[in-house]
């Protein structure tokens, strides 16, 4: 639960960095929409995670007062935005993963999680489609954009393997049908991503390097800076209400 929430929270934090910087005003509005959806999903999940924990922590306690090692997001979402090509490749890979995951979680035996997933599915479907539209226009547009997309794929692809790791989920949650085994999502994920890349005349990168650790609290060096920025004000005023 915390892993899903953190994925959304950190992805939204990165997407919101595009605000007032997008390639066209229309895209500024679109990226903000996606960030708002993703942040909204994260908030629902964080609140629920806090309730399940039963220690009285709310969404803000979890977002602002945990240290880096306690964040369970995949490393993919914390990576720098890079240029628009990197952002679109990240979005394609991440939103497709989220879409597969939430589609499966609609059938979770945990009713509240299933309800959150049902709402998120329609949102992520739109995110995937947005990433697809842009992947086509950048992959099959100018040579410069094609080259940038190829470089972005090379940079992002290694971090997609972590999305489908299984070991970190408690076996009983899988057995009870609460959680979904991420490994089962890799095939439908690859089929979607592969189709988009082929249509965009882009090559699917080789699977070699597969960095990992996010689900266990091991992050990349940029994560500390992201959290420092996100959390500093909240932490500078302990106990304050905003």
């Amino acid at each position: 639960m915390l892993a899903l929430a953190d994925d959304g929270l950190i992805a939204a934090q990165r997407l919101a960095e595009w605000t007032s910087r997008a390639p066209e005003l229309e895209e500024d509005v679109a990226l903000a929409n996606i960030a708002l959806d993703t942040l909204g999903q994260a908030r629902l999940l964080l609140s629920y995670a806090g309730e399940l924990e039963g220690a009285g922590r709310d969404e803000d306690d979890l977002a602002y007062l945990r240290d880096e090692q306690d964040f369970r997001n995949c490393q993919l979402v914390e990576l720098d935005n890079g240029d628009f090509a990197v952002t679109i490749v990240k979005l394609l890979c991440f939103a497709t993963y989220q879409h597969e995951l939430y589609s499966a979680l609609r059938r979770s035996t945990d009713e509240r999680l299933a309800a959150i997933a049902a709402k998120a599915v329609t949102e992520t479907e739109y995110h995937v489609d947005h990433a697809r539209l842009w992947t086509l226009r950048l992959g099959d547009g100018t040579p410069e954009a094609h080259q940038r997309m190829t470089a972005a794929l090379g940079r992002i692809w290694p971090y997609t393997h972590e999305l489908f790791e299984t070991g970190w989920i408690e076996p009983e949650l899988l057995a009870e049908g609460v959680a979904v085994d991420p490994a089962t999502l890799r095939e439908p994920w690859l089929s979607t991503v592969d189709k988009v890349l082929v249509e965009a005349t882009l090559a699917v990168p080789d699977d070699d390097w597969a960095p990992t650790g996010g689900r266990h609290g091991v992050h990349t060096e940029v994560m500390g800076y992201l959290l420092a920025e996100m959390q500093y004000l909240h932490r500078a005023h302990p106990g304050a209400t905003w």
Partner: peptide, 14 residues
């Protein structure tokens, strides 16, 4: 403004 119809519908929705 949009480069093509598909993107125009998308942007209009947003």
């Amino acid at each position: 403004h949009a480069s093509d119809a598909e993107l125009a519908v998308r942007n209009a929705r947003d």
